[in-house]
């Protein structure tokens, strides 16, 4: 099977998964959420296969252009969701997360994104590409889950559901923050030092990573030291994810800089 066939199957499975999760949301029958989660897992396995095929065919990491990194972000988000759901049992966020994953996969498949395998420019030929991008995007995937649980916190009515969403948001940030710090900032600096001889050059993408990081540092400090919880925490987590999103997309399209590859 070719990469595009597997990718299409992944897409279909994610859609089926979202469908069952939605059915669960309306019917409250746990069996439907179960099917949704099984479909998401099968979809993730296929998605992994598609990424592996791509890696083997191109001979380099599967995140060197927009198509590849969108696909990888979708993969990481589904993975983050499956991990969080396994640990905390929150199928309610399933439909929203799967819709985000479907959106990312659809965007990746759109004709706007060139899918050709292109050879790597010299600056990207490094194993730090793997470490830097995969760990960063995995961290951002956990921020994406925190984003959804924070939105659900704001829209939920029952206090016990709110409480749950608040605590899951925090747990997602507690995973995402160290990953983002390691991948985005530490590995980013190490790689920049190896490739260009400067670990930090105030390039817009670097600055926006820093801003994202500061927003989540604010989330942690207001929570731990000032005891903020609930609504205000949820709003900060939402802003943090939007900053991450801007770092990822906005900087490429709206601001110019060194990181113009992907």
């Amino acid at each position: 099977m070719t990469e595009s066939t597997i990718f299409l199957l992944t897409f279909i499975l994610y859609i089926i998964s979202a469908f069952f999760y939605l059915a669960f949301l309306f019917s409250k029958k746990p069996g439907r959420a179960k099917i949704g989660s099984v479909m998401a897992v099968i979809g993730l396995v296929l998605h992994t296969a598609a990424l592996i095929v791509r890696t083997v065919e191109s001979g380099h990491a599967p995140f060197t252009n927009m198509y590849e990194s969108l696909s990888f972000l979708a993969w990481a988000s589904v993975l983050a969701f499956i991990i969080i759901d396994k640990k905390f049992g929150i199928p309610r966020i399933g439909p929203y997360l799967m819709l985000i994953a479907i959106g990312l996969v659809a965007l990746a498949s759109s004709p706007l994104m060139p899918k050709d395998v292109t050879p790597l420019v010299p600056a990207l030929q490094s194993y730090w590409l793997w470490l830097h991008v995969s760990v960063t995007l995995l961290g951002e995937a956990f921020f994406a889950v925190a984003f959804i649980t924070s939105l659900m916190y704001l829209t939920a009515k029952e206090p016990e559901k709110k409480e749950r969403m608040d605590s899951v948001s925090y747990r997602c940030v507690a995973v995402g923050f160290p990953l983002f710090t390691l991948g985005g900032l530490v590995f980013g600096m190490v790689w920049a030092y190896k490739a260009w001889g400067t670990y930090w050059s105030w390039d817009p993408k670097e600055v926006w990573s820093l801003i994202t990081w500061i927003v989540f540092a604010l989330y942690l400090h207001t929570r731990i030291v000032m005891g903020w919880k609930g609504k205000r925490s949820a709003i900060i987590a939402i802003i943090g994810f939007l900053a991450a999103l801007f770092t990822y997309f906005g900087v490429n399209y709206l601001l110019a800089g060194l990181h113009s590859y992907a």
Partner: peptide, 16 residues
Amino acid sequence: AIVLLIILAAASILGT
């Protein structure tokens, strides 16, 4: 700290 971090973030945005 909260105020400083907010100012730092805002200033950094301005620079981009």
